[in-house]
């Protein structure tokens, strides 16, 4: 029941307007065919399952239908910020790829 700030709509909105989109920055391997089973399995299934700060995606379902990045604390539900996909990537990298 938290509030999320949609970086496209520029407003804080109720959680009901959004849908969770999974852990952020799980990039599809550039060449899946040359990847071994373990590497492909990691991409498919391995997730951080963090207790604490977590970079994740949300989709603004009833609004702009855009996916964006949220840094959320999975234990306290505190939210450090939300960004567009591109800006979120920069913020994530600025933290060294993980919080």
């Amino acid at each position: 029941m938290f509030l999320l700030s949609c970086p496209h709509c520029g407003e804080k909105r109720e959680e009901e307007e959004f849908a969770y989109g999974g852990e952020a920055f799980i990039a599809r391997p550039a060449d899946p065919e040359t990847l071994d089973d373990e590497g492909w399995g990691d991409y498919l299934f391995k997730r951080k399952n963090t207790k604490g700060w977590h970079w994740e995606m949300w989709g603004h379902q009833t609004g702009c239908r855009k996916f964006f990045i949220v840094k959320r604390n999975t234990a306290s539900h505190a939210i450090a910020g939300s960004w567009t996909l591109a800006e979120g990537r920069k913020a994530y990298d600025a933290e060294g790829g993980a919080a």
Partner: peptide
């Protein structure tokens, strides 16, 4: 629809 949008937005913009 959400699946296709997600691929388009995240991987293949």
């Amino acid at each position: 629809m959400t699946w296709l949008e997600k691929w388009h937005q995240t991987e293949w913009p």
